[in-house]
């Protein structure tokens, strides 16, 4: 499965420009992480990819065919977990998945349901009414319905929201395994979710693509732009302590402040590191923040 986005634009009726001239190519097998701050346009892009919205400009090609002509093929190949969704509370987990499997037209729904339930670790709750499930368990039912039938295209919008850390690790690994044969697009603003498993990253902000490439390539862009320093040194240098956490002033963006016995140790990204900062090896989060903060400064 291959999806190509050409000059994709999306403006809402209220005038809000959600996406601007996006060009992307997504090809299986791949686990592509879609990163961006809240309101960057991730969910809009996801909705466009599942034909829940129609673009106001540009085109989406599915295996070379315009999405408008291959919508039925897309729906037959798609597993989709939206950011905001509900479930039929009066049904049990199995009944709900059975209904979704039937909607998808799966030939062997029992097996598919069993696999999906196992994959999301809901075996014990499979006979429970959905209304009795916790928030995390409902999220897992949502993931399970997306996984039903092993669709060749899996689009997951914030799939790990509401999951505890252990579950998040489990699902990261699950998505990674799933992506060995398929195209998985994972939208998140949690860097950890994509750090270890995605082979491709797309970073968008304000409706524009800021980066496409591998995580390593993204990290590479931040080499020499990440440093650590003691806060007292910066105070001495600047004469005062200022609010710097989220403000790109003097080219420095503090990403972490850690209280230690020797004082406050800061980690920051900057286009040009100050003299009192000691250069550090960047992490994916550093690189992402560097990219976002640089775009904000521009």
């Amino acid at each position: 499965m291959q999806m190509e986005l050409h000059d994709l634009c999306m403006a809402y009726p209220d005038g809000k420009q959600a996406l601007q001239h996006l060009n992307l190519s997504l090809k299986a097998p791949s686990l592509t992480g879609l990163l961006g701050p809240n309101g960057a346009g991730k969910s809009t892009l996801m909705k466009l990819l599942v034909a829940a919205l129609l673009p106001t400009g540009g085109s989406i090609l599915v295996d070379g065919q315009p999405l408008a002509k291959s919508e039925r093929l897309l729906k037959a190949s798609l597993g989709y977990l939206p950011q905001d969704f509900g479930l039929f509370d009066e049904l049990t987990v199995t009944q709900f998945l059975d209904y979704m499997a039937a909607l998808k037209g799966l030939r062997n729904p029992k097996k598919a349901i069993q696999e999906a339930v196992q994959a999301v670790r809901l075996e014990e709750k499979s006979k429970s009414k959905i209304r009795t499930l916790s928030g995390g368990q409902r999220q897992r039912v949502g993931i399970a319905q997306a996984l039903l039938g092993n669709p060749p295209l899996l689009i997951l919008d914030e799939p790990t929201v509401g999951l505890d850390p252990e579950e998040r690790i489990h699902f990261r690994n699950l998505f990674s395994r799933t992506a060995q044969e398929r195209l998985v697009l994972l939208s998140t603003h949690i860097i950890e979710d994509v750090q270890s498993v995605c082979d491709q990253l797309v970073v968008i902000n304000h409706g524009k693509v800021l980066f496409t490439g591998t995580p390593e390539q993204l990290i590479q862009t931040a080499v020499g732009h990440v440093g650590v320093f003691w806060e007292r040194n910066s105070v001495q240098e600047q004469g005062s302590v200022r609010e710097q956490d989220s403000v790109w002033e003097q080219g420095l963006h503090i990403t972490a402040r850690v209280n230690t016995s020797q004082g406050i140790r800061c980690r920051a990204v900057a286009d040009k590191l100050p003299a009192y900062a000691k250069a550090e090896e960047p992490s994916l989060e550093d690189a992402y923040l560097y990219l976002i903060s640089k775009e904000a400064a521009q």
């Binding site: 039925r72 798609l78 939206p82 509370d89 909607l103 998808k104 319905q145």
Partner: peptide, 17 residues
Amino acid sequence: DRPARNRVDTLMDAVVS
């Protein structure tokens, strides 16, 4: 109204027109 009331319509619309 049931799918919209339960907010399942987004899941269903992704599968069936």
